[in-house]
Each structure stands twice: as structure tokens, then as C-alpha cells.
């Protein structure tokens, strides 16, 4: 009866105890950081002696933080756009192509996801040293597009596999050009896959830190690089404020994505 909830008895109490502990373990640090970012203690005393917005004001007063956030947004949007475009085309080849080595191609397309990021970071850093792309927006976007690409391919391939090609063929038979049929029939039909791909790709870039650390210059830094740099100096509550904004933004994107997905899937 180990898989019947009602018959667990004393064992259920033990399982619940571990589950609650693990949930607290997962949740407490996040809540803790958010609380500290509003706390008045410079030395991060918890619970804070009083509440303040001081750290957020310091954050807003320092233009380097704002610049970093803007860079992150720019890199994220450009990488997501590029990754989704390339992944859309590649997915047509993966799903509909009939050529030798298709399985190999699929494996190659997913490799950036499983390769240890540090190996890719060092490799692309070496290449960009040679061609002078370190510390440039183009460099950031190219590197992040590679990392985001698999996360864009997976949802698009999945939704394209679920789409009945004969509908597209019917449109062509009715006089649409193949391109027209793809744009007007197929793309709207797989919009949820495209949308998930864009959200995933953006968040991968937005949260990426390892490659960004190598690529960044003092003049061009993403938000995670800026936090990383600050963390290596001290544990100032300003970092708690920056982290809270970063987390809040990610949660916002996810919540908005969930809502939008529900709306467009109707």
C-alpha cells in the first residue's frame, strides 16, 4: 500500500516531514534575500532592526546597475530573436527533412545544453580574443544564442511534430504558395511552441553568468556579471536588492508567459 496516500499511516507522517523540510530548504533562502533587501542592517542582521528602501535607492543612484540591466535586456531580446528564428528553420529540417544524418544533426543541436558551460565559455573566449569580439554586444549575443538554441529547438520541434502537415498541403492545393501556407497556416498553429521557445531563450540569456563573466569588459556587463563582481568584493545589501529585482523579473516573465499561453491556446 506504499503508493496509496490514505494507507500510508505513520510512514506518511515521515514523508510529509521530509517534504516540508525540503520545501522550506528550497524556499527560505529566496524569501530571506527579499527580506534582507528591505532590511536596514548594513551587516545583513536577520531579522532586520527596521525596514527601509535605502538599498533600492542606492541601486537606482548608481548608473552602472541600470546600464547592466539594459545590456542584459538587449542581449536577452536579441539572442532570443536570433535563436527562435534559427530554431524555427532548423525544426522544419529536423521534423520534415528526409536526409541521412538527421539524428546526428538533432544531437548536435542539443549539445550546447549538455556540454559543461565552462568548456564552452573558455572556448568562445579564446575565439573572441582572436577576433576581438570580447566585450562587445555582438559577442554576447552570438554566445548566448548558441546556449539558448537547444532550449528554442525543443518546444518548436515538439509543436511542429504535433501539427498535421496535410493542413498546410491543403492550403497549397487551394492556391497558396508554400511560403504563404507556412506563414499563414503553420506558424499560427505552432505559436505556443514558438512562444515557449522565445521565453526559454530569453530567460537562459537573462540568467546566464559563466560565459558572460568571460566575455564582459568593464564597459559592457550584464546584470549577473555586475552582481558577480559585487559579490566578490563584499556582501552588501545592495546586492540583495539587485538579486530581488532579478528574481522578481524572472517570476514576472514566467507568470506573464503562463497567462499569455493560456490565452493564445484558446
Amino acid at each position: 500500500m506504499l503508493l496509496t496516500y490514505r494507507h500510508l499511516g505513520g510512514l506518511g507522517v515521515a514523508l510529509w516531514a521530509v517534504t516540508i523540510l525540503v520545501c522550506l530548504f528550497l524556499l527560505v533562502p529566496i524569501v530571506f534575500i527579499a527580506a534582507l533587501s528591505f532590511g536596514s542592517s548594513q551587516w545583513l542582521v536577520f531579522p532586520p532592526p527596521s525596514w527601509t528602501l535605502r538599498w533600492y535607492r542606492e541601486l537606482a543612484a548608481d548608473p552602472r546597475w541600470l546600464e547592466a540591466a539594459l545590456t542584459s535586456a538587449k542581449v536577452g531580446l536579441l539572442s532570443a530573436a536570433l535563436a527562435v528564428l534559427l530554431a524555427l528553420m532548423a525544426s522544419f529540417a529536423l521534423v520534415r527533412g528526409r536526409f541521412r544524418g538527421r539524428g546526428l544533426l538533432r544531437a548536435l543541436f542539443l549539445t550546447p545544453m549538455v556540454l559543461p558551460v565552462i568548456v564552452f565559455a573558455v572556448a568562445i573566449y579564446a575565439l573572441f580574443l582572436r577576433v576581438g569580439l570580447n566585450g562587445t554586444l555582438v559577442g554576447f549575443v552570438l554566445a548566448h544564442t548558441v546556449l539558448a538554441f537547444p532550449f528554442a529547438v525543443i518546444p518548436i520541434v515538439n509543436s511542429l511534430e504535433g501539427f498535421d502537415k496535410s493542413i498546410e498541403d491543403a492550403a497549397v492545393l487551394c492556391g497558396a504558395s508554400p511560403l504563404q501556407a507556412k506563414l499563414k497556416i503553420t506558424l499560427p498553429a505552432i505559436r505556443i511552441g514558438l512562444f515557449s521557445a522565445a521565453v526559454f531563450a530569453f530567460l537562459i540569456s537573462w540568467d546566464e553568468v559563466v560565459v558572460a563573466i568571460f566575455m564582459a569588459s568593464p564597459d559592457l556587463q550584464t546584470l549577473p556579471v555586475r552582481i558577480w563582481g559585487a559579490l566578490r568584493q563584499d556582501l552588501s545589501p545592495v546586492i540583495a536588492a539587485a538579486s530581488t529585482i532579478l528574481v522578481a523579473f524572472t517570476l514576472l516573465v514566467m507568470a506573464a508567459a503562463a497567462l499569455l499561453r493560456r490565452r493564445i491556446s484558446r
Partner: peptide, 15 residues
Amino acid sequence: SMWTNLLARTYAWMV
């Protein structure tokens, strides 16, 4: 917890 920025989570543990 999975989607919370890695640096934010690591910072929490540092503190």
C-alpha cells in the same frame, strides 16, 4: 526555486 537566478540563490547561502 529552479528558476530563481543562480547568483541570487548562491548569495543567499553566502549570507
